[in-house]
């Protein structure tokens, strides 16, 4: 390769690279909305803003490298005898100050930002009037308490106050804060609703918390991002942020569903998709499943299961290959 063809090649590949980058960047923004770049609520919106500003701030540090490297490589190529050559030069106080100073300043800025954002949208922080003010939104109504139980490979959403539960879909009223407690009745999972907020781990024997709010109507998905076995990639639930009216009618529709009693729970806790659970329960139609709740303490009893001083036998642990229905019934609530 002659230097001439080489530089032409370099120019062309640079142009091609630039085109490619444009397509790549444009993709997530233009495509069918998924991901937190298309937020449905203020929390994901803040996360997007943080992403943009972190990128801009770091660019200050890396642009000199991205632009300077090709320049230096070209300018100080060996064949360019006109360029200065200083083989013994190895220190300059002001350059040192700049080298250390620039990253320090940028990291200081980023540190302050990340602290502010982390405190502001901490998943454990209850979305109250004060937080709503900080997020610049109006609260349309009272908080909705929700319990989430991770199963292999679906989420069970419990609405204890409304006396309903759902699998394969989660509905939340726009403008109402949603306060979740999460646990699993199998291995560890991670709960994320990209367009609204998250994510938080759900772990057996423990309850974690997540507070979410949507400020516009729309649909998206809740996903499990932690690998939990063969059906993990299908563990998605449709999430709909709807008007309070639509939410109420969804609740009343759910109240007409089958009862989620201990026996039913043991069945749906088996490994499998929502469709599998539907089949196991002998229900017609397609996903999702809506339940009526009689007992509202299922979540606590799932946690209690693993605090049994006798331990939990393998065949009593949903998600284990040897799980069987008769031993897997949830323990009674200890009053």
């Amino acid at each position: 390769m002659t230097p001439d063809t080489r530089s032409r090649l370099a120019r062309r590949s640079a142009a091609a690279g630039l085109c490619l980058m444009t397509i790549l960047v444009a993709g997530p923004l233009a495509a069918d909305p998924s991901g937190f770049l298309h937020p449905l609520g203020p929390i994901a919106e803040i996360q997007r803003t943080e992403l943009v500003w972190a990128t801009v701030a770091v660019m200050v540090a890396i642009l000199p490298v991205l632009l300077g490297t090709p320049f230096i490589m070209w300018r100080y190529r060996r064949t360019n005898t006109k360029a200065t050559y200083r083989p013994q030069w190895h220190f300059d106080t002001w350059l040192e100050v700049g080298m250390w100073g620039l990253p320090i300043v940028i990291v200081a800025f980023l540190g302050i930002w990340l602290a502010q954002a982390t405190f502001r949208i901490d998943p454990y922080r209850t979305i109250d009037a004060k937080m709503a003010e900080e997020l610049n939104i109006e609260l349309a109504g009272p908080q909705v308490d929700m319990d989430v139980v991770g199963l292999d490979w679906k989420w069970l959403f419990l609405y204890p106050d409304q006396g309903v539960a759902s699998m394969g879909e989660m509905v939340m009223p726009v403008g109402h804060p949603v306060a979740m407690r999460l646990t699993t009745d199998t291995v560890m999972q991670a709960f994320l609703v990209p367009r609204i907020g998250g994510q938080i781990y759900a772990m057996p024997r423990m309850a974690t918390r997540l507070n979410l709010i949507a400020d516009r109507e729309g649909r998206t998905e809740a996903i499990n991002t932690q690998y939990t076995g063969l059906g993990m990639s299908g563990q998605r639930a449709e999430v709909r942020a709807v008007s309070p009216g639509a939410y109420r009618s969804w609740i009343s529709r759910a109240q007409e569903g089958p009862v989620l009693d201990d026996e039913t729970y043991a069945i749906i806790a088996q490994s499998g998709s929502v469709a599998d659970a539907r089949e196991a329960l002998g229900l017609d139609g397609t996903t999702p499943i809506l339940f009526r709740l009689e007992a509202t303490d299922i979540f606590d009893r799932v946690i209690d299961r693993y605090q049994n001083p006798e331990g939990v036998a393998r065949d009593a642990q949903p998600g284990s290959p040897t799980y069987n229905l008769s031993s897997g019934v949830l323990p009674e609530a200890d009053q």
């Binding site: 937190f36 994901a44 803040i46 996360q47 943080e50 992403l51 972190a54 990128t55 701030a57 770091v58 660019m59 540090a61 890396i62 980023l110 930002w113 990340l114 954002a117 982390t118 502001r120 949208i121 998943p123 991670a190 994320l192 990209p194 907020g197 998250g198 994510q199 938080i200 991002t225 932690q226």
Partner: peptide
């Protein structure tokens, strides 16, 4: 390095983790 700094921010990390 850029993506590392993005990930260092817990607020963003909650979205892109995993």
């Amino acid at each position: 390095g850029l993506s590392g700094m993005i990930l260092a921010n817990p607020a963003i990390n909650w979205q892109v983790h995993n």
